[in-house]
């Protein structure tokens, strides 16, 4: 089926199988490989993207469900060669180790800040509760988000 996707502000008309997962369309058809697959069941958060302002696991959403809606992936965070403040804060605080959870983690945090520009520590933790990280123990990720919102 032909469907229209609005990804990172760009419209794409794509031939998509009704059973195709959004994650596969992003990764295989649009070559946006920032979103990762870690479990394929919506349990690890590595594939998190933002759909109409909400962080979702793109491995358990059919592409058809996202057609015509606003999709944001990790590739949208950098604007005109300038990193998003969340990305900068992740780098400056040692919140990146192996990096496999990082794109999903960043998108969950971005969705949080889009709704709530000054979250508490508890709110940050809740926002990333579906994003597993095996490297950092989350401490530096939380610190990075706190730093990113400090000046707001």
């Amino acid at each position: 089926m032909e469907m229209e996707f609005n990804v990172n502000g760009i419209k794409h008309i794509l031939e998509v199988d009704p059973m195709e997962r959004l994650l596969d369309v992003l990764r295989n058809k649009l070559k946006l490989t920032g979103a990762k697959e870690g479990c394929g069941e919506g349990e690890c958060g590595a594939c998190t993207i933002i759909l109409d302002g909400v962080a979702i696991n793109s491995c358990i959403v059919l592409a058809a469900q996202a057609a015509g809606r606003e999709i944001l992936t990790i590739e949208s965070l950098e604007k005109d060669g300038e990193l998003d403040r969340l990305q900068k804060a992740f780098i400056n605080n040692g919140a990146v180790q192996c990096g496999y959870c990082t794109p999903g983690m960043l998108m969950s945090c971005k969705a949080l800040l889009m709704k709530n520009p000054a979250p508490t520590e508890e709110e940050i933790k809740t926002a990333i509760e579906g994003n597993l990280c095996r490297c950092t123990g989350y401490t530096k990720i939380i610190k990075a988000v706190k730093e990113a919102v400090k000046d707001i």
């Binding site: 990764r27 920032g34 590739e75 780098i91 990146v96 990096g99």
Partner: peptide
């Protein structure tokens, strides 16, 4: 001193290639 991991920039941008990519 703290210096970020060598591939931090590519990782936060989602540009770094893992084998799956």
């Amino acid at each position: 001193k703290y210096i970020p991991i060598h591939d931090a920039y590519e990782k936060v941008k989602g540009k770094l290639q893992y084998v799956a990519d």
